[in-house]
Design a protein around this nucleic acid. Structure first.
Lengths: 111, 111
DNA sequence: GGAATGCTTATCCATACGGTTTAGTATCCG
DNA sequence: CGGATACTAAACCGTATGGATAAGCATTCC
């Protein structure tokens, strides 16, 4: 189940940057965009965007394929599944705190 | 809904370190542990652990309360909900690829 | 009061990160 | 062939990160 995944370290680190999250969102909206198409709307030099793509590829969140002189990027969301699985183990804690809050509210107002 | 949350940047960055994830896991197992109790099993200086706790507190993933000379840490999982919400938007992409795989398998074996 | 405990602060260090500019390599077009 | 296009590589820079030590407070205990 983690053949397509990268260490959580790299996945979470990759997701910690807003530019990189934006790149993923753009690929989610339209997959297979070229490097320069992705870079165009970003107020940043091409090499800087390249480095972000390197990080995303390192975390296996995208794949790149060169055809001719253009490189197309594809979203590879699989590692996010592991990240979500990790987070899901804590779901009960925020749910629980809501329950506790409800209990407190209930106790304060015994109708 | 994000009153208790920190920017995704900080949450994901906090989660990107294995020491910090381990600290969260330990608090999930037993909440309210003291700083030194948390630090004890970690092969690292106390100040180093302190800095990790600072990062976790900065991401609002824990809270600290001092009583006497001991400080107790409590898990505050709420920001994880935002992180999961962000990831959840991509769930269809990994689900989709599984569907595709299923379709391929099915096509290859037309019984 | 004095010593031990529990945490914090300060300083320092090496490496990683996020950005820049400049230069280089393919590839396509005319 | 020559030039434009699309990306890549290299060098550099400031700041942040993750670690270490050493010293500094409070607080509790004897």
């Amino acid at each position: 189940m983690d053949k397509h995944s990268a260490p959580l370290d790299q996945v979470f680190a990759a997701l910690a940057d807003p530019t990189r999250r934006a790149l993923l969102e753009r690929l989610a909206a339209e997959d297979g965009q070229t490097v320069s198409a992705l870079a165009a709307p970003i107020a940043m030099s091409l090499p800087a965007v390249m480095k972000h793509l390197d990080v995303l590829e390192g975390a296996r969140l995208i794949t790149r394929r060169k055809t001719g002189r253009t490189v197309h990027c594809r979203l590879a969301a699989a590692p996010m599944e592991d990240a979500m699985a990790w987070l899901a183990r804590y779901q009960r804690f925020w749910a629980e705190s809501l329950d506790r809050l409800a209990a407190i509210v209930e106790a304060k107002d015994p109708t």
